[in-house]
Design a protein around this nucleic acid. Structure first.
Lengths: 212, 212
DNA sequence: ATGTTCCTACCGTTCGGTCGGTATGCTGTG
DNA sequence: CACAGCATACCGACCGAACGGTAGGAACAT
């Protein structure tokens, strides 16, 4: 073992930021996890795509799972803070519901890769981290359910709907978007949100019309 | 290599059906794939759970992916045939839509493991099989979209909704159920379907009411 | 001198899949 | 009925490849 590392590229070129390395690893993992899944993506692939090595990876992340957790956390925290803003902005459950749908759609389209990974690779989180993320996710769902219950109590929303089921329906409608949304498509998140809101609030049926 | 296979269990006991072996492998894979995912489940685990060996597995299936494909196909074919029955039973788009929601919910709850695997592990299908399954899935979505378009043309459904978006919303609402449904829960598929239909057709808002 | 950042080389394990062989039932021929 | 011949059903040892993670050191900044 006389000559190790015979040729190395120059590092710390000018205004060097090691945090950029970490970010580029996360970006690489984001697109690979989205396309191939967590198990389907090796550390090797992640570092190759970022033009780095496994050594660099394990300098910035302690395990592969920690990286996954960071990705999930970025999204769910963004979602939570957006919901918090809505709750402070208005009290009207009808407005709140429209806004919840709107921020769900915009954050899903903005964090498309994060969201895909969030829903598809949740099970790969270890015990404590899984519990933590699941807790934040429940918080989001409680916000939806709270608004619906409030709307019923205030007499805006139908009493014959179970708030839990209505919540799951609405959340599912929004969350499912990650499966089909394309930035190149004909509709943006705002327009989709408007249609979903109308659909759920006003209904698809034309009132009173029984034929054309 | 003097003495191989020193102790083997008796086989073909009485009325022996090799097809049962195949089924038990599929059942084993169903629950393991559902709980741990496709990549997260090894052939070893599947055969252990079925009290068999890898030799038995590769006698019945040519690859791990073929088994996955069979699972997916069972569900999507059941879905397609159920939709076919609806289309023959009635022409009214309002009834058809309610029925589409109903059979979606019942098949999701009935084939819970299949559905979970269908949506979570679709990407592990190889080219031609992926295309085949995706094609059948598109057929399902076209059925939803066709009913909605028909309802608009016949003057039952709102004209200001894009049929494509409405379809995705409705499909998402139904499909998402696989994420939260529990057979031990308070509501069965029929009740959930009723609520979803009401929600989407009639809307959540109480018409004309502006306060409590 | 000391800590940070990143490299190469390596380790133990596990994976999907293959292969040669064995036990069992079916079938045709005398 | 006997029995050869063959297909089916299954076993368990094995293979090469790839995996996540570790270790020790080199390049750089302070």
């Amino acid at each position: 073992m006389a000559e190790t590392t015979p040729a190395r590229r120059r590092r710390w070129p000018d205004g060097y930021d090691p945090e950029a390395t970490r970010t580029s690893l996360m970006d690489s993992a984001l697109s690979l996890f989205q396309a191939q899944g967590f198990d389907g993506t090796s550390i090797r692939e992640i570092v190759d795509r970022a033009n780095l090595t496994k050594g660099a990876f394990y300098h910035h992340f302690s395990t592969k799972e920690e990286l996954l957790w960071e990705i999930q956390n970025v999204y769910i925290e963004a979602q939570l803070s957006a919901i918090g803003e809505i709750m402070e902005a208005t009290d009207d459950p009808r407005v709140r519901l429209r806004e919840l749908v709107r921020v769900s759609l915009t954050s899903i389209t903005q964090y498309h890769a994060h969201v895909t990974i969030f829903y598809q690779e949740r099970r790969h989180l270890n015990g404590p981290r899984f519990v933590e993320v699941a807790g934040k996710r429940d918080e989001v769902e409680r916000a939806f359910a709270g608004v619906i219950r409030d709307g019923v109590e205030k007499g805006f929303f139908r009493r014959d709907l179970d708030p839990k089921i209505a919540t799951f329906g609405l959340v599912g409608m929004c969350a499912w978007t990650y499966q089909w949304f394309s930035p190149a498509g004909a509709f943006g998140p705002e327009e989709i949100a408007r249609q979903f809101s109308t659909m759920v609030l006003d209904g698809v049926l034309i009132p009173g019309a029984d034929a054309d």
